[in-house]
Amino acid sequence: MFDPDDPLLARVRAMALALPGADEKVSHGRPAFFTKKVFAYYGGAIRNDGVWVQHEQAIVFLPGPDERPALEADPRFWVPAYLGPSGWLGLDLDERTDLGEVAELLEDSFRLTAPARLVAALDR
């Protein structure tokens, strides 16, 4: 379900694994970045009129509750199947994507899911 040599995946991987205690595994056929809990996936899907639409080059992340409404109003973001009802969002990536924004989204998701000691390590 993903190309291990995808250059966008390599960039997301570098950002995600730079966070304290972060690791990677393949979950449901996609790269997942986690500490005790997953904080981001690379790639996702939505269900549109009964048809699965794949978002191969994307991040799926958990935004902060205060940020979610603004992100949902931005047409670049989409609600992924399965994780969407739990508050997760997706963002498609390409060569024009602001990687600073991606790093912020990954960090925010990390802060919501990582143990307090790892969040404290990030803040140091």
Rank of each mutant, 00 (worst) to 15 (best):
A70D: 06
P85M: 12
W88C: 08
D123K: 04
A81D: 15
V12M: 09
S109G: 04
L99Q: 10
Q54M: 02
G29F: 09
D49C: 00
F110Y: 13
A58P: 12
A120V: 10
G64C: 11
P65W: 03
D49F: 03
E24A: 00
D98E: 15
K25H: 05
L62K: 08
E101C: 07
D94H: 08
A121V: 05
T35W: 08
P65R: 13
P4T: 08
A18P: 01
D23Y: 12
N48A: 14
L89I: 01
V60T: 11
L89Y: 05
L122W: 11
Q57K: 11
E67G: 07
P63C: 06
D74G: 06
W88G: 10
A70Y: 06
L99S: 03
A18W: 05
T97F: 15
R13E: 09
A16Q: 07
K37G: 01
D6Y: 13
T113G: 14
M1S: 13
V26H: 03
A45E: 15
A10L: 15
D94V: 05
Q54V: 01
F77E: 05
R11T: 14
R76H: 13
P75V: 10
L19D: 01
A116Q: 12
D49E: 11
L19W: 00
T97H: 14
Y42N: 06
A22K: 00
A58S: 15
L71C: 04
L112T: 04
S86M: 09
L83V: 05
P20D: 01
A103W: 06
E67I: 01
R30M: 12
R117I: 09
R68P: 01
L91R: 11
V12I: 09
L112Y: 03
I46L: 13
I59R: 10
L112M: 14
G100L: 12
P69E: 04
D49N: 10
D3F: 07
L8H: 13
Q57F: 05
L99K: 02
P69Q: 05
Y82F: 14
A40V: 09
L93W: 02
P63D: 06
P63A: 09
D94S: 06
A32P: 02
E24D: 07
T97M: 14
A120M: 07
F61W: 07
